[in-house]
Design a protein around this nucleic acid. Sequence first.
DNA 1: TAGTTTGTACGGTTTTTACTGTACAAACTA
DNA 2: TAGTTTGTACAGTAAAAACCGTACAAACTA
Lengths: 183, 183
Amino acid sequence: MEGHEKLEKARERIIETIAQNIHLYGLVPSAGRQYGMMFFQNEPLTLDDMTEKLGMSKTSMSTSVRALSDLKLVERAWKKGVRKDLYKVTDDWYQSFIDLFSIKWRRSVTLHLVAIKKSLAELEQLSIDPTASEELQKEVQIDIEKLKYIKNYYEWLERLVDVFEDQKIFDLVPIMNDSESDS
Amino acid sequence: MEGHEKLEKARERIIETIAQNIHLYGLVPSAGRQYGMMFFQNEPLTLDDMTEKLGMSKTSMSTSVRALSDLKLVERAWKKGVRKDLYKVTDDWYQSFIDLFSIKWRRSVTLHLVAIKKSLAELEQLSIDPTASEELQKEVQIDIEKLKYIKNYYEWLERLVDVFEDQKIFDLVPIMNDSESDS
DNA sequence: TAGTTTGTACGGTTTTTACTGTACAAACTA
DNA sequence: TAGTTTGTACAGTAAAAACCGTACAAACTA
């Protein structure tokens, strides 16, 4: 096998692995392939570049690069003399992981807490309603306890997201670089 | 509005929120609805119970309850005299979150590390190949650096998963229960 | 043993999602 | 200003996933 082929194969393996795991970011394999391809390019790419490299329509490139941008996996880049939009992969992968939490999980936490507080208020109202039957009262009380539990849980999750966002997670799990024993 | 209706509505809100956010677990809304419904049941349920409550086929219940089980969001339960399989939601939500990492993210980390090590070995081989052109050598060297970087990243992620799995995360982000000022 | 009950594999259908091509608005160029 | 270029909205199509009903194997019952 020729040298360039070997290089290509080594890259392909990584790209395909990314494609098969990108669902953890809520993205589809083709977006992962796009990301992986960009990762190995040393220059920012235009939508037309991507179309050419991946053999997909420009429209698709546009929508998926937007999805990648929303998760801050790729970002806009500039190069003098180029009028087209340029994109490159965000080079801090630790930050990308954190951004996933900041964006997707915090949103989820917020939605849940809103719903829980609303339902909790309604049930607490109901629990002091004298027209409610004894049996209903009991059910309501059980649900209130359940909602209190998951409220605590989501507040914990919120604090967890905070810990990622303000980088405190690196105190507990520090970044360690290989001791590069280069000659 | 009648009491039972109010209770139902308060539950419905929570269930729907879960359904809309369960994609973070790689599951579809209907599985989330199933989970949410089970959450408010105080008894374990059979597949037939679920079919009735959700108006979906037993086959669907079977497959989605398996998906929920795989993520340890629900677990088997036993009740004397009941021959059918019984399921209930895992009541430790913190543990469920941790299990998500243990199962989905660790798997992803492992797959990535395998691929990276393989490609890295190939590229290192290639980098000492005397038949390779100067230009290729340079490209290979760049890729090696990139792979080393993401190798470090996935090793960090692996340690992060460890920290969740062995509960050390609770040192950094402790569980706090509301001071329950019950009379 | 024969007769039930229960869960799931499998094939087919419906629904959803990914992707494409066209058409156009906005931003550049001359 | 008119003429390009570039990104994306939108509608239609292709592909994938969710869901259902049937059929059957495994486990239980009598």
